[in-house]
Computed example of a mutant assay.
Amino acid sequence: MPSAAIDDYLKAIYHHTEWQDARITPSQLANVLGLAPSSVTEMVLKLAAQGLVTHRPYGPIALTDAGNERAATMVRRHRLIESWLVQEFGYGWDEVHEEAEELEHTISDRLLEGIDERLGRPRFDPHGDAIPDADGHVEREPFVLLALAAPGHSGRVLRVSDRDADILRVAEEAGLTVGAEVLVMDADTLVIDNTTIAMPAETIEAVWLSASA
Score class of each variant (00 low, 15 high):
residue 81 I to V: 10
residue 82 E to G: 00
residue 83 S to E: 14
residue 85 L to Y: 01
residue 85 L to C: 04
residue 86 V to N: 01
residue 87 Q to T: 03
residue 88 E to A: 15
residue 89 F to K: 11
residue 89 F to L: 12
residue 90 G to N: 15
residue 90 G to Q: 11
residue 91 Y to G: 08
residue 91 Y to A: 15
residue 92 G to L: 14
residue 92 G to R: 12
residue 92 G to E: 12
residue 92 G to Q: 11
residue 93 W to G: 00
residue 94 D to N: 12
residue 97 H to P: 00
residue 98 E to D: 11
residue 98 E to V: 14
residue 98 E to T: 15
residue 98 E to Q: 15
residue 100 A to N: 02
residue 100 A to D: 02
residue 101 E to T: 14
residue 101 E to D: 15
residue 101 E to L: 06
residue 101 E to W: 03
residue 102 E to M: 02
residue 102 E to W: 06
residue 102 E to G: 04
residue 102 E to I: 09
residue 103 L to E: 06
residue 108 S to N: 08
residue 108 S to F: 09
residue 111 L to R: 15
residue 111 L to T: 14
residue 112 L to T: 11
residue 113 E to C: 05
residue 114 G to C: 10
residue 114 G to E: 13
residue 115 I to F: 09
residue 115 I to K: 05
residue 115 I to M: 15
residue 116 D to W: 13
residue 116 D to K: 11
residue 117 E to H: 14
residue 118 R to G: 09
residue 118 R to H: 15
residue 119 L to E: 06
residue 120 G to R: 13
residue 121 R to S: 12
residue 122 P to D: 09
residue 122 P to V: 01
residue 123 R to K: 14
residue 123 R to G: 03
residue 124 F to R: 13
residue 125 D to N: 12
residue 125 D to I: 02
residue 126 P to K: 02
residue 127 H to A: 10
residue 127 H to S: 14
residue 128 G to M: 04
residue 129 D to Q: 11
residue 133 D to R: 05
residue 134 A to R: 12
residue 134 A to M: 09
residue 134 A to S: 09
residue 135 D to M: 11
residue 135 D to L: 13
residue 136 G to R: 01
residue 136 G to H: 05
residue 137 H to S: 11
residue 137 H to N: 13
residue 138 V to L: 08
residue 138 V to F: 08
residue 138 V to G: 07
residue 139 E to D: 13
residue 139 E to Q: 09
residue 141 E to V: 10
residue 141 E to N: 03
residue 142 P to C: 01
residue 142 P to S: 05
residue 142 P to L: 03
residue 143 F to C: 04
residue 143 F to I: 01
residue 146 L to P: 00
residue 147 A to K: 06
residue 148 L to G: 06
residue 151 P to K: 02
residue 151 P to R: 03
residue 151 P to Q: 00
residue 153 H to G: 05
residue 154 S to F: 06
residue 155 G to I: 04
residue 155 G to M: 12
residue 155 G to A: 10
residue 156 R to Y: 13
residue 156 R to N: 15
residue 156 R to P: 00
residue 157 V to R: 01
residue 157 V to Y: 03
residue 158 L to I: 05
residue 158 L to R: 14
residue 159 R to M: 15
residue 159 R to S: 10
residue 160 V to N: 05
residue 160 V to W: 07
residue 161 S to P: 01
residue 162 D to E: 09
residue 162 D to M: 02
residue 163 R to T: 07
residue 163 R to C: 08
residue 163 R to A: 11
residue 163 R to L: 13
residue 164 D to P: 02
residue 164 D to I: 00
residue 164 D to T: 04
residue 166 D to A: 10
residue 167 I to L: 03
residue 168 L to C: 08
residue 168 L to N: 10
residue 169 R to T: 00
residue 169 R to L: 05
residue 170 V to H: 01
residue 172 E to P: 07
residue 174 A to D: 08
residue 175 G to V: 02
residue 176 L to F: 05
residue 176 L to Y: 05
residue 176 L to R: 00
residue 176 L to M: 06
residue 176 L to N: 04
residue 176 L to D: 02
residue 176 L to Q: 04
